[in-house]
Structures are given as C-alpha cells and as structure tokens.
Design a binder for these strands. Structure first.
Lengths: 110, 110
DNA sequence: TCCATTGTTCGTAAATAATAGAACAATTGA
DNA sequence: TCAATTGTTCTATTATTTACGAACAATGGA
C-alpha cells in the first residue's frame, strides 16, 4: 500500500517558518541530548529516531524529538513504522541567518 | 576612597573563556528576560543592573544576571553600590565564532 | 492472523528553574 | 552617624523539565 493511501497516517504538527522563535530554538538546542541529535542530522540527514544512539530511554528520546519538532528545528515524517527526521535548514537559515551554522561549528565534532 | 582600596570588595566568579560551554550559553540566552538583557548590552554596554527595565522583581533580575554571568555571557563588576555589566564579546566570539552575532541579528530590534 | 518493530502516550517521580518578598550587606552622600 | 541606594541572599512557592516504565498504536512481514 502506498504511503499516501494509508488510512490512519500520523499527522505531526510543525510550526510554519514565520512562527519560529529565537528563544524556543535556543532552548531546544540547549539540551545536550537534543544538540547531539541535531549534530547527527547535520552530518547524516533523514535518519530514523531509532538509529540515534542516545543515553536515554525510548520514551525520553521521543520527548526530545518532540521538543525539537515543536521548536521548528527538525521535520519528522512517518514512514512505515519508522519516523524519519530531517533538519529544517532552510527555514532556520531564513529565519535566523547564520545561527545553525555557528552552533554546528561551535559544537565539538561527533 | 579608591575602588581598589575597598576593604570588602565583592568578588564575582566568572568562568574562564575555555570553560564556556555551548549548551550553557544557549540555555542562558533562551530566556526572554535574559535575552533582552543581552540585546540591551549589545547596544549599550556597561550598564548597571538597575538601568534595565525588566518585568520581574529585583531578586529575580539578580538571578538572571547571575545565570548570564555563570554561563560566561556577561562580565559583572561592582562599582560603588552599582553593578556594571558588559558583554563578553571577545570570549564568546573566540569560543563560538559567529554565534553571538547571529543571535543578535536574529532577535527583534529593541 | 500473529508477531516483531518502531515510536507515542500516559502516569508518575525527581530534579530544575522562575518568581517574589523579606532580610541583609556594601557603598555613598547628607 | 544616619539614611538612601543598589544589589544579593535566603526562603518559599509554583511551574517546568527530564526521566522512566508500562501500556498502547500503527505498520509490515511471516
């Protein structure tokens, strides 16, 4: 069955670009676990939640992905039983020029 | 009496440049009150705590200044009964190139 | 249909953080 | 010396955040 024909497709809310706020983005990135997710995506975009090696329980990881999504930092789309994540680079760059790059450069290498 | 001769001079702890951490700085700047302090200092450095128009009580403001100081974002020095604040631009730029600028550019004008 | 996989949600507990008022401390000027 | 100014610290309260396990839901393959 094609993905789009799926009867029940989880709809994840993403804030539109214009609604992104600086403080919310900074807050989302101020947690080590969440920052590591973003750093990981910056190097390898489109990864499923389960492929990240995080030092927290599954439910906690789910929470962190949600914080990133609601801040507008990542986009999540379900694909089968998985959840594919990607960085909202264009939106972040448009709204906060240079911010993401400086943060990625400032953080230690993976 | 000269400032340096003062018998009891409050000694404020400031983290050295090398100890600044990205997550701590991001966290410090993720609060609207603290971000407004930093934006204010970026335009008008060397202001005393009392000259900021903040929507919180004196003790709460004191807390926010401390968070900024302990994250290494601002430098505080006492001068008489006042506390003079300045942005640690050079340290921030050295440690996290472009970060402060992008944040100041991204935030709305005062 | 059954089961494994993947991730979310719920309930809850522990830790953090923001806030304010009151008391306090240091400085300066009258 | 006394009082005003400026800011910190203490204490308490409230709210938020992080965390986990258990239960649940959706998907896809055997």
């Amino acid at each position: 069955m094609s993905l789009c024909d799926t009867a029940i497709m989880r709809v994840l809310q993403h804030p539109p670009r214009k609604n992104l706020t600086l403080t919310q983005v900074l807050y989302a990135l101020s947690d080590p676990v969440r920052l590591s997710i973003v750093k990981n995506l910056a190097e390898d975009d489109g990864k499923a939640c389960g492929t990240f090696c995080l030092p927290v329980a599954k439910s906690t990881a789910s929470h962190h992905f949600r914080v990133l999504r609601e801040a507008g930092v990542i986009e999540m789309r379900s694909e089968g039983t998985q959840c594919i994540n990607s960085l909202r680079r264009e939106d972040l760059d448009a709204r906060f020029p240079g911010l993401l790059d400086s943060i990625l450069r400032a953080s230690d290498p993976l």
